[in-house]
Design a protein around this nucleic acid. Structure first.
Lengths: 207, 207
DNA sequence: TCAAAAAAACCAACCAGCTTGTTTTTAAAG
DNA sequence: CTTTAAAAACAAGCTGGTTGGTTTTTTTGA
């Protein structure tokens, strides 16, 4: 029985929005930006097109809101892994293995890649997304800085080590679209970890 | 006077195809895959829509052909820079600066990014592009292996150093879409060069 | 050599389907 | 009874692909 008994307006709105944003992220992940339509999102969310336009009048509103939520999840996911590392649940290698696994198999990375690439050709979208990306990046840095310390900050700072890792993961994920070569990615990951190990180490205890 | 006097069929075809492929790459670069239409390409190429469909019946034919040409230019560009390095025209730093400059400001990288991302949501395109990417990658490896030698191949092979650099550049370029921070990219580039310098060095003379 | 026939390149209009966004109605909550 | 949420029908525009016809080049054969 799925008969909804007297939800408040706020409950109705919140639930509908949640369904729409989840459907947006999933659709970006599954079929890409080019094949993501507002009608398709509404259908996948199990919501009428009218309800969708009521909450998110334009497609851009939908994309921006979905990105906001997605980035929140993205940061939360990384923080969870970082906490595992700090607690000793994961070791240095295990941490980066887990991050790579999330990038490759989670919804977040490719959904955001679709949006970023779409933003390249859409000035309006780009201006709305820029602050979101900067904010996400700040959160990444905050998480990283309490999880790792630089071995020799004069040569390579902790911040640059983070960005090196992020950029390698980005590059690998893009490459993985057309190159399904498990062995190569495993070796690449080892290479990255080797490089990083020379420049950062886990911050042992709490600061 | 632009009156064309009796070109052979082959000349006509070749020129029309050239115009269409150049317009395709430019359009992908300028407005992105989402805003690239076959009609738009024909218009930008100064060619009738009929001529376009004659030479490239489907949009995918156009994209695949453009990708093929683009990758050829991509490899040729890298080879030119590598040769400069081998000849001493560029030094280690200058080579990577030049590569990064090409990635960020040339037509190639972002056009191919658009296509790769589009291919993620289009199985047909993906299967046509996979071999092209693998071939490009082989050419990269061939160029790299006659230009650099690994300092300590047991730890990090020359091939992995290449891929590390490629992945970092890819990641940086994606990031650059929404983050225009010249200082950050300069520092990132220095970090990358520092990392690489510890593991590969230019192959001095010819092998 | 040179017209006629064939082939290739090119052009313009059309079509069916899908896009986003708007407008009109209906239902539910306050 | 007023306001908000949800639903449905509508409208204008663009997409890729197809089709019928024209021009240019190449081939044929007398």
């Amino acid at each position: 029985m799925t008969v909804m008994t007297r939800r408040t307006q706020d409950q109705r709105s919140t639930e509908t929005r949640r369904l729409l944003l989840a459907a947006t992220v999933q659709m970006l992940m599954d079929v890409g930006y080019a094949n993501t339509s507002t009608a398709g999102i509404a259908k996948r969310a199990g919501v009428s097109r009218g309800a969708q336009t009521h909450h998110y009048p334009s497609k851009m509103d939908l994309i921006v809101a979905a990105t906001e939520e997605m980035f929140g999840n993205y940061a939360a996911g990384l923080e969870a892994l970082a906490e595992d590392l700090r607690n000793g649940v994961l070791d240095f290698d295990g941490f980066f293995d887990a991050v790579w696994n999330e990038v490759l198999h989670g919804d977040w990375f490719y959904s955001s890649l679709e949006i970023i690439v779409a933003a390249r050709g859409d000035a309006g979208l780009r201006h709305q997304l820029s602050p979101l990306i900067l904010d996400l990046h700040d959160r990444f840095e905050a998480i990283w800085s309490k999880t790792f310390v630089a071995v020799n900050p004069e040569v390579i700072s902790s911040r640059m080590a983070l960005n090196l890792a992020l950029n390698v993961f980005r590059g690998m994920a893009v490459q993985a679209v057309l190159r399904r070569d498990e062995a190569y990615f495993r070796e690449m990951l080892i290479t990255l970890k080797t490089m990083l190990a020379g420049h950062v180490r886990p911050a042992s205890g709490p600061a």
